[in-house]
């Protein structure tokens, strides 16, 4: 993943946001969606994506549906009811984080913080 340290903490929120918008998705589909939205700027690797998906599933925030697609089985992920509520919380937290970061990195935007 590009700038992995910066993005790492937000990966689960990104996944949950995508699932909130798209209903259900499979692993590879998520990587491609992120790539397309960010115009190739952000690449989620297998090593980061699947542990994040399994962790969310383990926490009961994602549910799984398995379907036969062509000659193989495909595992789809979707948000559970708890997952939907948690997505709202995490997005609000992420927005707050972005706002604070913008204020810190570019203080001129917020006159309150100017000395």
């Amino acid at each position: 993943m590009k700038n992995s340290q910066l993005y790492k903490g937000s990966l689960t929120t990104i996944i949950m946001k995508l699932l909130e918008e798209n209903g259900r998705m499979y692993g590879y589909e998520i990587t491609q969606k992120v790539k397309s939205i960010t115009k190739g700027e952000l690449n989620i690797t297998e090593g980061a994506l699947y542990p994040a998906l399994h962790k969310l599933e383990g926490e009961g925030l994602l549910d799984v549906e398995v379907e036969k697609v062509g000659n193989r089985l495909r595992k789809y992920y979707k948000l559970t009811e708890d997952g939907q509520k948690e997505t709202v919380n995490r997005l609000a937290e992420l927005e707050e984080f972005i706002k604070n970061m913008q204020t810190l990195v570019n203080p001129k935007i917020n006159p309150d913080l100017q000395f």
Partner: peptide, 16 residues
């Protein structure tokens, strides 16, 4: 990508 797949396998096993 093999290394990543193996790492992902280990993490998945622990979560399971």
């Amino acid at each position: 990508h093999k290394k990543e797949l193996l790492e992902s396998n280990n993490k998945f096993s622990k979560i399971a």
